[in-house]
Design a binder for these strands. Structure first.
Lengths: 262, 262
DNA sequence: CGTAGAGTTGATAAGGGTCAATGGTGGTGG
DNA sequence: CCACCACCATTGACCCTTATCAACTCTACG
């Protein structure tokens, strides 16, 4: 059941036909494919390393997938035959102990690259925290391009180092922060990824949590009860508003940051 | 006092003079510099990506440092002007919260590469857990070579991905394991890095802990008292022998692994 | 031989886990 | 349109693991 809930489209399916206007705007053969021009990965993601021709080649080999909430993308220790870019939604990376204890070890947002080069099988599981759309490529195509275009490897190195910084930041949270500090740090991290404008300067920020209470607990090394209690505490203290289970408003970003422990 | 306790040598200092026999063995101008031939980093580390000429050039710009136990290599948020290879000893990577709580977020052994490309200042602190020897290069030389030799970037990407796997492995340990499991996991990890032979197949393994109880606590998100109590418990159960504060013998690797939670 | 620093051990307390009951909310079918 | 159910989240009572505080031991070193 690994791919339950995954719908796959081809980039050349009828729904994505370019119309005459679009064609007229990019007549050259090495201009970016129509579907790449609006893609975040083309600018901030790994595809930014490719020239027009390479991008066209990759687009020809790629396909769009829409994965519904909860579906598994990659099982632990499963052989992986493709890489992907996250186009929208949130992917959670998980590790599970033999007795079932689970830890979320990372979250991926658009336009992150999803996959583990240089390893036959993945060491972690990946699943859709929300509905996710992915642009997936065959492993072999990406690996050939890495050899032809060093810029691509450079982009992957930059993302790997950023993820490493994130992982180490969370090690501090997991190892040394209290439950209250963990929740505050988590809300701030989500806000910065989902509503960067508001979280940066503004005093308030509203967003839908991409995770259930159970996921948040698995991310912070807590139980769902503790997560719930700490959210309630922040609500009573007037720092957040809980519109419904998923939707949160941070009433005062500065005060919340003051409770994150750093 | 950032560099207290650091002794610096040049690679061309008298103590490292090549004798006639060594010269005779490698007459070509692009053969590896004498001091690189015996270096682990030349084979398993990043230097393996360089050809003879590049290696010679890098060696000319590099210098050997011996850092005594406890000395700080890089302060948090400090500007870094050089990269290094770890030649021997153990470097601990730390993060500290404003109120002083500390978390060790990684350990580096020979022949790991030390440094954070693409960032002006480091986001973590680094200090010598044991006496450490480093081979250091100017930032600019390494960065130019990264552009000239894509293989170098490939090596860095591989190391970054390995470190990311390690960091995520420890996130599980920090977030979901009990104190007893944390200590068992830690001892196994150290044994695998310091005494790989014995830890792999053998039933017993002896080694010197590269960390104090306080460091172990900071690595595992515990207090020194809990670390001490759990070590005592393993000793009483006949799984380890504590020769002295630093030296440990794992009497039964299999039984210890059974207590690591995975 | 005395002191300092690291480690151990013990008593107590608190933070967060566990177990159990209750409270929303969204989806389905009558 | 409403009632019911399933699932998620909240709240409460209690307990356990680990932190905290304190005393003591051991070893290295002058």
């Amino acid at each position: 059941m690994a791919f339950a809930g995954i719908v796959t489209y081809s980039f050349r399916m009828p729904a994505s036909r370019p119309n005459d206007d679009e064609r007229a705007l990019r007549p050259q053969s090495d201009s970016p494919p129509a579907l790449c021009t609006a893609c975040e990965a083309r600018h901030r993601g790994v595809c930014g390393a490719l020239d027009g021709e390479q991008l066209a080649e990759l687009a020809r080999a790629s396909h769009l997938q829409v994965i519904e909430e909860g579906a598994e993308l990659i099982g632990d220790a499963e052989r992986v035959e493709s890489y992907s870019n996250v186009l929208s939604g949130v992917v959670k990376l998980t590790k599970t102990l033999p007795d079932g204890r689970q830890q979320i070890v990372g979250l991926q947002f658009a336009p992150d690259f999803l996959g583990r080069p240089f390893r036959e099988e993945s060491t972690i599981g990946a699943s859709a925290a929300t509905t996710v759309s992915l642009c997936s490529f065959p492993k072999s195509t990406v690996e050939r391009m890495m050899r032809e275009q060093p810029q691509l490897e450079n982009r992957l190195l930059r993302q790997a180092l950023d993820e490493l910084d994130d992982a180490r930041e969370w090690m501090v949270t997991l190892g040394r922060k209290t439950a209250a500090e963990k929740i505050a740090s988590f809300l701030l991290m989500i806000a910065r990824n989902i509503a960067p404008r508001a979280a940066g300067a503004g005093e308030t920020a509203s967003f839908d949590l991409p995770l259930t209470r159970s996921d948040i607990a698995d991310f912070l090394g807590l139980t769902i009860e503790t997560v719930s209690r700490q959210l309630t505490k922040l609500r009573i203290d007037g720092i957040i508003r809980i519109e419904n289970n998923r939707r949160i408003t941070i009433e005062n970003v500065v005060r919340l940051a003051g409770r994150a422990g750093d």
